[in-house]
Design a protein around this nucleic acid. Structure first.
Length: 461
RNA sequence: UCCCCGAUAGCUCAAUCGGCAGAGCGGGUGGCUGUUAACCACUAGGUUGCAGGUUCGAGUCCUGCUCGGGGAGCCA
C-alpha cells in the first residue's frame, strides 16, 4: 500500500478505510487495553495519533515502540472521539521499521536547549522547532526563485571556485590539491604551477562580479548559492558557509536597487505567512512573542531611506551615550545601526551614500566625488540584512578606484572589459539568506537556521 | 582575534563561609486511566570538562588548557 503523508491525512475532509502512514514515534501513552502513538513524518508540525488495540497494544511489541522508533502503520482514518485532534488512525497492522533505544536516544519528550541540539544536528530536525524551521527555510528558498522569475530575472549559477584572490569581502578559504601548499600570496615564480589550476584558488566570497557580467548580457540576473568567508568571526550572525541571494540589474540605479530589495523582503515574508502559517505560529508561541508584530512592520509600511551624512547627524543629536563616538567619515558601529533602526526609525531602514573610503572599489562614485551610491538595509534584531550598490560603470573611475584600493588591474581584465564594451549603469545587492530566516522566525543564532552550521572549530556532520 | 561569563546525572539546573553531591524532567519497574506536556508509587544513574597547584579537607580558591555562550571587530 502506498504511503500517505501525515499532513495529507490530517487535512482530509472525509474518513478513509485503508491508509498507510510512516513516521517516527514522538511519544506513546498507554491506557487499559489500548495504546496511543504520536507519529510524526516531517510533512507537517502536527502528529498523527495512532490507536493500537488488542494484540497491537500488547507486549512484547509495545515496549519496543519507544520515542524515536520508526513505524509503518496501516489502518482506517477515522474521526477522533476525543478532543485534541480531528482524525486518528485506527491501526490494523503495524510494522516496527527501526528501534530507538530509550536509554541512549538523545531526544526526550521535553524541551531541549539550542546548544544541546547543535551537538546532535543530525537528530534535531526531528524536533518540532527544527522541523518547522527547515520547512520554512525550504519554502523561503522557493519563494526567492518565484519572486525573481515573476520579474524576468535569469537564475545564474555563479562559480564556487574562484581565482580572484581579493574580492574585498573578507578572508578566503584556499583550495588546493597540493600536499604541501605554498604560503598564501605565493611569491617568486608561480609557486602554484603544480597545483590543480596552476594558480592560487579559493572558495567564492560572492557571486557578484560574475553576476555583473551576466547582467550586462541578460539584463536581470540573480544568484542564490553558498558563500564562504574564512573570517574568525564568533557571533550569532556570522557563519563560514552561508547562502546569499545576489540580484544584479543592468540599466538600473540605486533607487531601483533599493526598491527591489524592499519588494523581495516583503514578498518573502508574505509568502511564508501564506504558506507556513502553522510552522510560524510555533515561533511566535515559543521563540519570540514579538514575531507577528515584527513581521507586520516588515510588510506594512515603506522602508525608511536615510543618507549616511544625515544618519551621522541624527546619531550625534540623539543624546545617546554610545560606547564608540559617532565620527563623520567613519563606519557606523553596531550600536549606531541598532539605534537608527530600532529606536529612531522603528522599522527597516536603508542607509545610503556612504563615504567612498569605507566602501568597496566597485561602488559607483557619486557626483559629489566623496560618497558612493551604496546602501545597507538595517533591520531590527539582525542588523545588516542587505548590502548593495550601484556599480561603477565608468572605466577610468573604476581603474582609479582599484588603484587606490591596491588591486591588481590585470587580474580583473574581464571585469574591466565589461566597462570597455557597451558599459551600462547597473546595480545589485546581496541578501544573507540565513539572516532573513532569523528575522522571519525570531531565532537568535545563525547556527540554528542552517542545517549543519560551519563556524570556527565546527565541522562536525 | 579581543573582552566578559560558563562547564556538576541522559537533559535543565541547585549545592550557604572551603566541610557527607541534590532536585525536576527523561530512563527502568509496577499501578491507573480514550490518552494527548498524561497521572501515582518505587528505582537505577556521578572520575563535578582536562591537567596541575594551595589546603587536614576543593564542585567551591589559584594557574594553564579545551569546549560552549554573550558582547566587539569583520560582514550577508
Amino acid at each position: 500500500m502506498e504511503r500517505t503523508a501525515v499532513r495529507d491525512l490530517l487535512n482530509r475532509e472525509a474518513p478513509l478505510d485503508a491508509v498507510r502512514a510512516c513516521g517516527w514515534v514522538r511519544t506513546r501513552r498507554d491506557a487499559k487495553g489500548l495504546s496511543f502513538l504520536e507519529v510524526n513524518d516531517g510533512s507537517c508540525l502536527r502528529n498523527l495519533q495512532v490507536i493500537l488495540e488488542g494484540p497491537l497494544a500488547a507486549e512484547p511489541l509495545l515496549r519496543r515502540l519507544t520515542t524515536g522508533s520508526a513505524v509503518a502503520v496501516e489502518g482506517a482514518l477515522v474521526a477522533s472521539p476525543a478532543a485534541g485532534q480531528r482524525w486518528e488512525l485506527r491501526a490494523r497492522r503495524l510494522e516496527l521499521l527501526g528501534e530507538a533505544d530509550p536509554e541512549t536516544y538523545p531526544l526526550q519528550k521535553k524541551r531541549h536547549s539550542d546548544e544541546f541540539l547543535r551537538g546532535i544536528a543530525h537528530l534535531r530536525p526531528r524536533t518540532n522547532k527544527y522541523g518547522a524551521l527547515f520547512r520554512i527555510r525550504s519554502e523561503a528558498a522557493f519563494a526567492v526563485h518565484r519572486f525573481f522569475r515573476e520579474r524576468g530575472f535569469v537564475h545564474l549559477h555563479s562559480p564556487i571556485l574562484t581565482g580572484s584572490d581579493c574580492e574585498g569581502a573578507g578572508e578566503l578559504f584556499r583550495v588546493t590539491t597540493l600536499r604541501e601548499p605554498p604560503p598564501a600570496g605565493g611569491g617568486g615564480e608561480n609557486p602554484f604551477a603544480a597545483d590543480f589550476f596552476g594558480r592560487e584558488a579559493h572558495l567564492t566570497v560572492s557571486g557578484q562580479l560574475e553576476a555583473e557580467l551576466f547582467a550586462c548580457a541578460l539584463g536581470r540576473v540573480y544568484t542564490f548559492g553558498p558563500t564562504f568567508r574564512a573570517e574568525n568571526s564568533n557571533t550569532p550572525r556570522h557563519a563560514a558557509e552561508f547562502w546569499m541571494i545576489e540580484p544584479e540589474m543592468a540599466f538600473a540605479d540605486l533607487e531601483e536597487d533599493m526598491a527591489l530589495a524592499e519588494a523581495l523582503v516583503k514578498e518573502l515574508v508574505r509568502h511564508l505567512r501564506a504558506h507556513c502559517a502553522e510552522d510560524l505560529e510555533l515561533f511566535a508561541r515559543w521563540v519570540d512573542p514579538e514575531l507577528p508584530a515584527r513581521l507586520d512592520l516588515l510588510v506594512e509600511r515603506p522602508y525608511e531611506r536615510i543618507p549616511y551624512a544625515e544618519a551621522v547627524r541624527i546619531l550625534q543629536a540623539s543624546g545617546e551615550r554610545f560606547e564608540y563616538p559617532v565620527r563623520e567619515g567613519g563606519d557606523l558601529q553596531t550600536e549606531h545601526e541598532r539605534y537608527l533602526c530600532e529606536r529612531h526609525v522603528g522599522r527597516p531602514v536603508f542607509v545610503t551614500d556612504y563615504p567612498k573610503e569605507i566602501k568597496a572599489f566597485y561602488m559607483r562614485v557619486n557626483d559629489d566625488g566623496r560618497t558612493v551610491a551604496a546602501m545597507d538595509l538595517l533591520v531590527p534584531r539582525v542588523g545588516e540584512l542587505v548590502g548593495g550598490s550601484q556599480r561603477e560603470e565608468r572605466l577610468e573611475v573604476l581603474e582609479r578606484r582599484m588603484e587606490e584600493a591596491g588591486l591588481p588591474r590585470d587580474r580583473y581584465w574581464w571585469y574591466l572589459d565589461i566597462r570597455r564594451f557597451g558599459t551600462v549603469p547597473h546595480a545589485g545587492f546581496g541578501l544573507g539568506f540565513e539572516r532573513f530566516l532569523m528575522l522571519a522566525t525570531g531565532v537568535a543564532n545563525i547556527r540554528d537556521v542552517i542545517p549543519f552550521p560551519r563556524t570556527p572549530h565546527n565541522l562536525e556532520f
